[in-house]
Amino acid sequence: MNIFRLTGDLSHLAAIIILLLKIWKSRSCAGISGKSQVLFALVFTTRYLDLLTSFISLYNTTMKVIYIGCSYATVYLIYMKLKATYDGNHDTFRVEFLIVPVGGLAFLVNHDFSPLEILWTFSIYLESVAILPQLFMISKTGEAETITTHYLFFLGLYRALYLINWIWRFYFEGFFDMIAIVAGVVQTILYCDFFYLYVTKVLKGKKLSLPA
C-alpha cells in the first residue's frame, strides 16, 4: 500500500458516498445516469467475487463490501425508491455498445483464462467506460448540478491517483499490471474535458453548463 493508492481509494469512497448522500438527502436523482450506476454495480460485482474465495486484508474486504453495498443502494434509489425523479429521457446511452465489446475483449485479452480472471478483466475494461452514459447525459442536458460535478471529480481523480500508484509500484516493487494500466489510462483520459470544465468553471464558483 502507498499513499497514492490509499488516497485513490479514499477519493473513490468519497465519490460513492457523495453521490449516495446527494440522492438520499435531496430525494432526487435528477441529472444522474442510472445506466452508469448499474454499470458500476456490475463492475464491483464482477471484480469482487474474490470476496468469496480469498482474504487479503480487513481493509480490502471492508472497502469491497462498502463499494458493493453503496452501489446497489444507489441503483435501488434510482430505479425503485426515487424512480419518479429519474430522468430517463436524457439517460439514453446504448450500454450494449459498451458491454458487448468489453465482454468480447475480456475473453481475448486477459492474464488467465479462468472464470474469476475473465470476470476481473471484464470489470476492469467496463470500469474504464462506465462513466460514458453519465457524461453523455450531461452533454444532452447541457448542465450538471454542482454536487454532481464534485462526485465526478473525485471519481476521475481516484483512477488518476491509481496511475501514479502503478508508477510507484513498478519503481519500488517491480509490479505492473498492463491490463489495469491501459484501462486506467483510457478511463482517466475520458475525464480530461470534464476536469478542464471543473477547474475552469466549478472551482470558480460558476455552474457547469456546456454550450448546448
Partner: peptide, 10 residues
C-alpha cells in the same frame, strides 16, 4: 498469487 486471486488492489 494471493489465495485464489492475483489482485490485491480494489
Amino acid at each position: 498469487v494471493i489465495g485464489q486471486t492475483r489482485h490485491d488492489e480494489l
